[in-house]
């Protein structure tokens, strides 16, 4: 049984010349084996930084200011760099948005798919190569023993993306962090990649998917966590979150997303843009853009509180029994908590 990743109270700060920006503020979540969590938010909401914090791969100006990230009981944030290196790529794999950039253009796939197996002392080169070929085949690359000798630029966009996923998979990590893995590819390829991730999930890998596309998130994620200006504004099972968003920002995200297949409702963009963290609005950071904001919103910080589920009609799980109701939903909005 692979371990679960439990992140608690994660805080990440970036030091600028004269001040400190809190880019990730009190973020907590759990990813169980075989579960998938979607982290949703606009660019700059801190979702990628949160993941890089867990990997301890922040740029020089970044610093983890607090919290824990436990993988099977070990706090990753307390490990030495040397110990952390053993976790990266072996226990936690990472998939990036654009394989064109995340794969080294001057090294063959063979080199790039086998080197970490050797770094981690998992096996020798012959075995590493065998595994790499096998994994390339698993992700649906035809003639993997031939393709492994090629360079990334010799593959099509979809193939490259698959090769990158294979690179993360080859060590069979217990957790896979995918940072917008489908944003840079065609829709047809997108579907195939999602199937691939869903299959990994079925095999027991915990997946964290960073995305701003709710349609993609719904495809195979169990939970969703919505981030805004470095904080979690809503967190809960994705289907319930989609059928009845609690936070006005989540609602706004849904209304501004195109939906293929469904009868298209009016597309409502969220007015304004995400705040500059150096000038974080007081109270709820979303209130200047929120249509339902009141005076109180700008005054009081909004903690993440359990959401009672006002008016939530869970059609999908109607009559699913008490265990469904036990699923926690949290929202950082007093109005949602009190009135729905």
């Amino acid at each position: 049984m692979s371990p679960s990743l439990e992140v608690e109270g994660l805080r990440t700060e970036f030091g600028l010349r004269d001040r400190v920006l809190r880019v990730v503020d009190d973020v907590s979540f759990t990813v169980e084996p075989g579960q998938a969590l979607a982290i949703v938010g606009e660019s700059g909401s801190g979702k990628s930084v949160a993941m890089r914090s867990v990997m301890r791969l922040l740029p020089k100006t970044g610093r983890i200011a607090g919290g824990q990230a436990r993988l099977g009981g070990t706090d990753l944030l307390a490990l030495s760099e040397r110990q952390m290196r053993k976790v990266r790529g072996r226990d936690i794999g990472m998939v990036f948005q654009n394989a064109m950039e995340a794969l080294n253009p001057t090294l063959t796939l063979e080199r790039q798919l086998t080197e970490h197996l050797k770094w981690h002392g998992i096996c020798d080169h012959a075995e590493a190569k065998r595994r790499a070929v096998e994994t390339l085949g698993d992700v649906g690359i035809p003639e993997p023993e031939k393709r492994i000798r090629t360079y990334p630029f010799q593959l099509s966009g979809g193939m490259r993306q698959r090769a990158m996923i294979a690179m993360a998979m080859v060590t069979q990590p217990s957790v896979l962090i995918a940072d917008e893995p489908t944003t840079a590819v065609d829709v047809t390829v997108q579907r195939q990649l999602l199937d691939l991730l869903a299959e990994l999930k079925a095999r027991g890998t915990g997946i964290i998917m960073i995305t701003h596309d709710l349609g993609v998130a719904r495809y195979f994620c169990d939970d969703a966590m919505v981030m805004y200006a470095g904080r979690v504004v809503e967190h809960g099972p994705i289907r319930r979150l989609l059928s009845r968003p609690a936070h006005p920002y989540t609602t706004g995200l849904f209304e501004s997303t195109l939906e293929v297949g469904a009868r298209q409702r009016a597309l409502l963009p969220i007015p304004g843009s995400p705040p500059d963290l150096a000038y974080r609005p007081t109270g709820c950071a979303f209130h200047p853009r929120c249509g339902r904001a009141e005076e109180r919103c700008g005054r009081e910080e909004q903690p993440l509180l359990p959401w009672p589920g006002h008016g939530e009609v869970d059609l999908l799980h109607a009559g699913a029994g008490p265990e469904r109701n036990a699923e926690r939903r949290e929202v950082a909005c007093w109005k949602a908590v009190e009135h729905g």
């Binding site: 990997m55 080197e115 981690h120 690179m167």
Partner: peptide, 22 residues
């Protein structure tokens, strides 16, 4: 600053190896 350098570090590469090879 290239992403493949971050990617190599994310695979658990020792910093010196990543600098030299990637």
């Amino acid at each position: 600053r290239e992403e493949y350098v971050v990617a190599a570090l994310a695979k658990g590469g020792p910093r010196s190896t990543v600098i030299m090879r990637h």
